[in-house]
Amino acid sequence: MFDLRPVLLVGLFAALPLVGANAASPSLGPLNTQSTICDYRGCFGFGPQQWHRPAYVQPNYRPPNAAGPNYYQPPGQLPPRLTYDPPPAPRVQPSADNQTRHQQWCRNEYRSYNPRTDRFLTYEGIYKTCNSPYN
């Protein structure tokens, strides 16, 4: 019987230099010579001459009717005021006999009462006029 192993080995070694020489041949598939890859850094082109275009040079892909944010623009006309503050009521000075009773009542009610100005200091730090039942 005839042994085929040496014949196969000789044929295999004879074909190896041809595979290495034809590595870029079209029989193995075409090489990609023109490709572009884009990411957050920009676009990169590969081929006979490589190139790079930074991201800030890329065209704007926003729709033409898109408007930017308006929080840095000056406001237009302010909305109308919807509250009403009634004018202050006219101050009525108590009569002379009720004056002392009024001051006594306010002194007894509020520790910070000042009889010269007829005002007292609230917990919020606001001076208010004392309204006693003897006004």
Rank of each mutant, 00 (worst) to 15 (best):
F2P: 12
D3K: 01
L9I: 13
L9G: 04
G11D: 04
F13Y: 06
A15I: 10
L16G: 02
L18M: 10
L18T: 15
V19Q: 08
A24M: 10
L28P: 09
Q34K: 08
Q34G: 12
S35V: 13
S35R: 09
T36M: 04
T36N: 09
I37R: 05
R41V: 13
R41A: 14
Q49I: 15
W51A: 13
A55M: 07
A55F: 03
A55G: 10
P59T: 08
R62Q: 15
P64K: 00
A66T: 13
A67W: 06
G68E: 12
N70W: 11
Y72F: 12
P75Y: 02
R81W: 11
T83N: 04
P90Y: 02
Q93K: 04
D97T: 11
N98V: 04
N98H: 07
T100L: 02
R101W: 04
C106H: 03
R107A: 12
R107Y: 05
R107L: 08
R107S: 14
E109R: 08
E109V: 10
E109N: 09
Y110Q: 11
Y110E: 11
Y110W: 12
R111V: 14
R111A: 13
Y113C: 04
L121Y: 01
G125M: 02
Y127E: 13
T129C: 00
C130E: 08
C130L: 00
C130V: 02
N131L: 07
Y134T: 03
N135M: 03
